[in-house]
Simulated assay, not measured.
Amino acid sequence: MANYPSPRPETPEAFRKTLEEDSPSGAWPLALQCLWFDAKKNWTAAHDIAQEMKGPVGSLLHAYLHRKEGDRWNAEYCYRQAGEVYPQVSLQAEFEQLLQRILNSTQP
Rank of each mutant, 00 (worst) to 15 (best):
N42Q: 14
N42C: 03
Q81G: 08
L103A: 07
H66R: 07
A63E: 04
P9S: 11
P24W: 10
T44A: 12
L91T: 00
P7H: 09
L61F: 07
L61M: 10
Q33D: 04
P12S: 04
S59T: 01
R8A: 14
E20P: 00
H47W: 05
L98H: 07
E94Q: 13
W28V: 12
R101Y: 03
A93W: 00
L35I: 08
H47D: 02
P87V: 03
A93N: 04
Y64W: 13
G58V: 11
N3R: 10
Y64K: 09
G83S: 08
C34D: 03
Y79F: 15
D71Y: 10
V85I: 05
Q97R: 15
G26Y: 03
A63Q: 00
A31Q: 13
N3H: 15
M53R: 05
R8P: 03
Y79V: 10
L98K: 06
E94H: 12
E21K: 13
A93R: 07
Q100L: 14
F15G: 06
E76L: 07
E10T: 12
L32I: 09
Q100G: 02
E52I: 00
G55M: 08
E96D: 15
P56D: 14
D71T: 11
L91W: 00
K17D: 13
T44S: 13
N42F: 03
E69F: 00
R101Q: 13
F37P: 03
W43D: 12
K17H: 08
D22V: 06
K68D: 00
A39K: 11
Y86M: 15
R101N: 02
P7M: 08
E13K: 13
A27C: 02
C78F: 15
C34R: 05
N74M: 07
D48T: 15
P7I: 08
A39V: 07
G26V: 14
E13Y: 08
A2S: 14
Y4Q: 11
N104Y: 01
K41M: 10
Q107I: 05
Y4K: 11
Q107K: 14
